[in-house]
């Protein structure tokens, strides 16, 4: 017997510092819960299949694609979007560097790039290696090549890559 009515679940998530309680259809992804239900449209939907990175948020401190995470599976989670990275008019250093280096054009991939960069810099701080790290056992040095590899999960069709890398380098210094 196939169900016709949605299965609903009550969850509470923290979004950019605010506790939000909502009832979600179990089919709802974190991305859709944010955008369609909570009106938090900073994370963008570019592909809905984990192939572009526009929906990247920080989930319990880690960068993830929110389009493949089910909302119901993240009850109690702490979510930070690019909107929440800024403190009112004070931009996060990564955001400021994106502005300074013009690391954006149409702006649609930008919040995902920003969240990804923030999450990525934390991963580097924790000493995580990447595909281009020469010696997997040695400490990581944040070269441009490392930034590019680590940011490759965020597509940009306008071609702002070179400026984004410059921005991240600047923010990391």
């Amino acid at each position: 017997m196939t169900r016709t009515n949605p299965v609903l679940a009550d969850i509470a998530i923290h979004v950019d510092g605010d506790k939000r309680q909502l009832s979600v259809d179990t089919r709802t992804t974190l991305l859709d819960a944010l955008r369609d239900q909570l009106g938090v449209t900073s994370p963008k939907k570019g592909c809905d299949h984990g192939q572009c990175g526009a929906c990247t948020v920080l989930l319990d401190g880690r960068r993830v694609v929110s389009c493949l995470a089910l909302a119901v599976a993240n009850d109690g989670a702490e979510i930070v979007t690019a909107q929440g990275l800024a403190d009112g008019d004070d931009l996060h250093p990564v955001q400021q560097a994106f502005l300074d280096r013009d690391g954006l054009q149409c702006g649609y991939c930008t919040p995902g790039q920003v969240c990804s960069a923030v999450g990525m810099l934390r991963e580097v701080q924790e000493g995580w290696p990447s595909h281009v790290t020469g010696d997997l056992a040695a400490p990581v040095e944040l070269t441009d090549e490392e930034i590019r590899e680590r940011m490759s999960g965020n597509l940009c069709r306008c071609g702002a890559y070179a400026n984004i890398v410059a921005a991240i380098r600047e923010a990391a210094e």
């Binding site: 449209t41 900073s42 994370p43 963008k44 979007t81 690019a82 909107q83 990275l85 800024a86 931009l91 955001q95 994106f98 502005l99 013009d102 954006l104 702006g107 930008t110 919040p111 920003v114």
Partner: peptide, 10 residues
Amino acid sequence: RMDGRAKVTG
């Protein structure tokens, strides 16, 4: 870029 702030915050 004049819409830059709005775009980096989404």
